[in-house]
Design a protein around this nucleic acid. Structure first.
Length: 219
DNA sequence: AAAACGGGGGC
DNA sequence: GCCCCAGTTTT
């Protein structure tokens, strides 16, 4: 995989995307606060579980002020099924306080400011930046990290290294769509353990054609 | 029984 | 770098 066929790959994935159900974070209102809260809920959590909790939560909480009208225990109980509920509840409360005091109840729109918020790392900060604000950025989660390495487009060990490598190599027009495309591609086709190479539409561009057979054998 | 889930923080 | 987090689903 190189920059010659990356454009073609993206075009094909764009087309495939129409037949996949939107992921939860993509289906949220493009409101930075919702993206931020949704992102916190989704950490190490199945998309389906995030969706259930997020839908319930956003019916009653639409702003940092509303979030603070609940106690930490209340929030924890509301988001219980996503796991890590105690840490996430505390982070949501602490973040809301910071937004109100320091940012006039708004979500900050720079990477540096976002990274200072408790429980916000590079993946969350970049998703808020790109999806919430439409600013350039590269959001690397486990799907993006796994897939671009399978492609052989980059060879990196950590998601952060992947982000930096993509920042160098990937033409900027693909920065924002890469996450929304590869998350769905990763959930539907290029699965972590048993990728469905038989159903893959971009196998020609992948360094690991037929990886499904090997992964199935060894595990 | 284990591994995995759209990570992040503490050490 | 390594390890934990917590509950649920998948293998």
């Amino acid at each position: 995989m190189n920059n010659q066929n990356i454009a073609q790959t993206f075009a094909i994935l764009q087309e495939n995307k129409k037949q996949w159900q939107d992921s939860t974070l993509e289906s949220l209102e493009k409101n930075p606060f919702f993206i931020l809260v949704g992102c916190i809920l989704s950490l190490r959590t199945k998309d389906q579980m995030t969706r259930q909790v997020a839908e319930r939560l956003f019916k009653i909480i639409r702003s940092p002020q509303q979030l603070l009208s609940y106690s930490e225990d209340d929030i924890a109980q509301l988001i219980y099924p996503v796991g890590f509920y105690r840490r996430k509840a505390k982070n949501l409360i602490d973040i809301s306080k910071i937004l109100i005091i320091k940012y006039q109840s708004q979500v900050p729109s720079t990477l540096e400011e976002l990274l200072e918020l408790p429980g916000v790392g590079r993946k969350t900060a970049n998703l808020v930046l790109t999806v919430g604000f439409g600013k350039p950025g590269i959001c690397v989660d486990t799907h993006v990290h796994r897939i671009v390495n399978r492609w052989g487009y980059v060879k990196t060990k950590t998601p952060e290294q992947t982000e930096m490598a993509l920042r160098d190599k990937l033409p900027q027009e693909f920065w924002i769509p890469i996450n929304s495309l590869l998350v769905l591609f990763g959930q539907n086709i290029c699965l972590p353990r048993r990728p469905r190479c038989g159903n893959c539409s971009i196998e020609n561009f992948c360094d690991q054609v037929g990886i499904e057979k090997r992964e199935t054998q060894t595990k």
